[in-house]
Amino acid sequence: MNRKLIALDLDGTTLNDVQQITSETHSVLNKLRDQGHIVSIATGRPFRNSHYYYKQLEMTTPIVNFNGAWCHNPSDKDWDYGYHKSLSRDLAISMLSLKDDPEVQLIAAESRDGIYVHGDYVPYPDFFPDGVKVSKQLSSETLLIDPTSVGVFTNTQQNQSKIEERIIKHYGEAVEVRTWGGFAPCLEIVAAGVQKAMGVERIASYYNIDRKDILAFGDEENDYEMIQYAGHGVVMKNGNDKLKVVADDLTGKTNHDNGLADYLTNYFNL
């Protein structure tokens, strides 16, 4: 079997419903790396709250953060295949116009190593892994750089489409809006053209892995281009119905029942 690049979404895919990597998942990924395959994370999360999983899995490979806006290798600061796509600072500040919508619980502008927030809502337990004290208030006085993304967290997933339409109407083709649901529904705004497949393609190029040898796993609409791009795109049993339409295959089990580990075990005959 050719060497594969295995690109993994985190929430709803690699992580179970309590944001943990199970021992079964860890063991399977270790076996695949021992066989020479490349395992990388491709997540909508910033690195500040995905680095724990990167370290837990003892990774040395590149990672894709912010839904494709930042591709980098934390274990090699001189890795020259990486890139970073930022948003306009003025555009990010103008997103504060959404703060009066009663369905918006938090607006968070993220840079590679900082976070600026408006609101007190904590979307999920490890959103501030180092404590809320690391954040700054989002304002024109505090945000002095072009951020990587802006996250708009809503009450429910059903409210997302209305707010997404508002964002697209106002900003048009200047941005991409990526969504995910679950217990922390979020609209993530990144620069136009940004999506996870950009980062996965860059990593595959670095390792000289053909597109047909890319396996990608995801569960939400922000995984759409990655699943579509991969030679073998797999959507979780618990995944979004729109995403399942473009999948090459589905897992037989959900993320909370070791669906990823189960699928990889069968696919690679471990």
Rank of each mutant, 00 (worst) to 15 (best):
S97T: 10
H84G: 06
M59Q: 14
L264R: 04
F183C: 00
L143S: 02
D113S: 14
V177N: 00
S205G: 05
T254P: 00
Q137M: 12
N16Q: 07
D213P: 02
L91M: 11
G199I: 06
R202A: 15
R48D: 11
V175I: 15
S111M: 05
G119V: 02
V234D: 06
V28F: 09
W79Y: 08
I203F: 01
L215W: 12
W180E: 02
L143F: 05
N49K: 06
H51V: 07
V39R: 07
A7F: 05
W70A: 06
T251K: 06
L270T: 04
K85L: 10
A261Y: 11
F153Q: 01
N155P: 06
T61R: 03
A109P: 10
Y81E: 12
V39I: 15
I214C: 09
L98M: 12
N258E: 10
D223V: 00
E164Q: 02
H37N: 12
V200A: 12
I168W: 03
T61M: 13
G182D: 02
G218V: 01
G119W: 10
E110A: 00
R33Y: 10
I107E: 03
P185I: 05
G131D: 00
P123L: 01
A42Y: 07
G12Y: 04
E176M: 08
N240F: 03
D262W: 10
P129F: 11
E110G: 01
F127S: 02
P62G: 09
G182Y: 01
L106R: 04
A184S: 05
Q20I: 00
V177P: 01
R89Q: 15
N16W: 05
D210N: 13
L8C: 10
Q105K: 13
F128T: 02
D120N: 13
I145D: 15
L57D: 08
A69D: 02
V132A: 14
P62K: 05
D126R: 08
E220A: 14
R3E: 00
V117K: 09
V200I: 15
K196E: 10
C71M: 09
V64L: 09
I6M: 10
D213E: 14
V134W: 14
L32R: 02
R48K: 13
V18T: 13
I93Y: 06
D241K: 11
H37K: 07
Y121A: 01
T254E: 09
E110S: 00
H232L: 10
F217K: 02
R202Y: 08
P125T: 04
T251R: 08
D262N: 13
R89N: 09
L98K: 08
G193V: 03
V200T: 13
G172S: 12
I167E: 01
I38D: 01
S97R: 13
V117G: 07
M59L: 15
T156M: 03
D219W: 14
I6E: 08
R178C: 07
K162Y: 02
L215N: 00
I209N: 00
G181N: 03
F128K: 03
F127I: 01
T142L: 11
N269K: 14
N266Y: 12
G259Q: 00
A108V: 10
G36V: 14
T60E: 15
P129K: 09
Q20E: 14
V200N: 08
Y124Q: 04
C186N: 09
I214V: 15
L260S: 11
G44D: 03
N30K: 15
H232M: 13
T156S: 12
T148Y: 06
V245P: 12
